[in-house]
Design a binder for these strands. Sequence first.
RNA 1: GGUCGCGUAGCUCAGCUGGAUAGAGCAUCUGCCUUCUAAGCAGACGGUCGAAGGUUCGAAUCCUUCCGCGAUCACCA
Length: 603
Amino acid sequence: MQPYIREEPMGIETILEAKVKEAVAELFSVELPQVEFQPTRKDFEGDITVVVFPMLRYVKGNPAQIGEQIGAYLKDQVQAVSGYNVIKGFLNIVIDDSFYIDFFGQIQDVADYGYAASNDSGAVMVEYSSPNTNKPLHLGHIRNNLLGYSVSEILKASGNKVYKTQIINDRGIHICKSMLAWKRFGNGETPESTGLKGDKLVGNYYVAFDKAYKEEIAAMVAQGVDKEVAEKEAPILLEAQEMLRKWEAGDDEVVALWKKMNGWVYEGFEETYKNLGVDFDTLYYESDTYLLGKDVVAQGLEKGVFYRKEDGSVWIDLTDEGLDEKIVLRSDGTAVYMTQDIGTAIQRVKDHPDVNGMVYTVGNEQDYHFKVLFLILKKLGFSWSEKLHHLSYGMVDLPSGKMKSREGTVVDADDLMQEMAQTAADIAAELGKLEDYSEAQKRELYKMIGLGALKYYILKVDPKKRILFDPEESVDFQGNTGPFIQYTYARIQSILRKAEETGAFDEGPASVTELHPKEKELIKQLQLYPETIQLAAENYSPALIANYTYDLVKEFNSFYQQVSILGEADRTKKAFRVKLAKKVGEVIASAFKLLGIGVPERM
RNA sequence: GGUCGCGUAGCUCAGCUGGAUAGAGCAUCUGCCUUCUAAGCAGACGGUCGAAGGUUCGAAUCCUUCCGCGAUCACCA
């Protein structure tokens, strides 16, 4: 989406900042570098508050008195200021209803209100998901996908061009383990023959490998072999390693099996991504990129960024930066993880020359890796290295501890989504809702609500905090939740349908001249949407969007409860309230779109 | 042990570059469906912001130390 360029309505802060400076210059002959504002607390009269204390560095005197003088000046000089009061060092300013009415008039027909005009600073590539292909996706991947997708949407809304990407870890010892186990124990099973999703089938063999491996170790230990030796020399492990060597050598049989099983996994992943509602613009495969980066290492050696040890391995010394020495090429000349990531980053810019920044959505267990990666790219002199960001997020843990695929202690992504939809269905049945809907309509709605609950539950938390997920305790559908917000949206749509039928919209151009306090609060909250998007983009934090939306919705429900919309006798007021409700609905839908959550017409 | 992150109500979380009496939801308890959808609204209860120092007119927020939890420090990815 390309937001069109337009004039943003001028915020009250911008106006007041200039006027407060003017007041201080006039009254005290002092230039103020900046003015500090905050929303007025609910227990005081006013809409916006100027904090006087910071001015005391420049203006000598009593804060209450200074506030009083500035207040009087503003009321006299600024049309939008209709009153003020001073409590201690806080100047609370009352903004006239007409200002908010005008503001609403300016935004009510702006379709993509809140979105910034596109900037020209180049595209951002956002990487997320990036799974291994030996097992199905689980709850940890869900957090990763939701964050990556949402941050992409937020960056777009804040004016950036975005490429969504992932690097699929399709090669390595892990997939060889699944392949070997399938070859040994699989009896030719396929997704078709078993009715299993491809990723699930392959994942089962990964577990089967681990079981056989552990049995071999136990048998060897029983025969007196040292445990550590057994772990390294168990025949099944040696065979898997041999398989990896054959793959790297391009062995026909191994490569064919590898293609077949990865193919199954991709079909399974595709289904999961589709259900989860995430997508990608470009894909990278590790099998294509794992050899990249070696030539860059050679260049780095020439430049003196890296150095070679006697055994031939190549390193970078980051001790000056407070980090350690890090290997970038093995003594046998093969690439390590870091080599690959250096090469892949450079490749991405080659493939997409407009890319001027990248976001890596990867768990915080890799904080150190990315710190080093970014530093290396900087030392290699790439201009875009300044604009790399590791979107580091906390792990999703179970009450029993870490999720481990090998041990089967994972919350499966497909199962979880299914359960959430089922919970939504149970609640709807209990409340006796929408009995006139067809089964297909219901199924679609429950999926939307279930996913809304799950996505909101995960995204409302600050990304860097770890999440403890208890499968025994279901995700809430009440209070600060996705369904609560969806429900409010549905209520608004219900009003709009009725307003349409009764023609409540068409009351001519005349607008209200005064606002109900709840209407004023709503417009103030709407005003915050554009800056919230910018803040969320700067901080790579969907949680800010979630919290904003919750505040807006809470405010609307309070308004809805206290003020009649369609029951209002005054036709002008009624039309205004309908339009206000419509705008709130649009912003809810817009904000939820940034979170990747849908909104229902009814629920 | 070194480095990084986190620690706010019984539970889950907000709290922007320091600003007024630290806010929500869940849970518990009270009211509100003959008026636009009660997955809602209004209210009660609940906190030495991990601890101690420091900077400041002012600290949950910044600095130092300590405690607790987690991650990381591989010629693994």
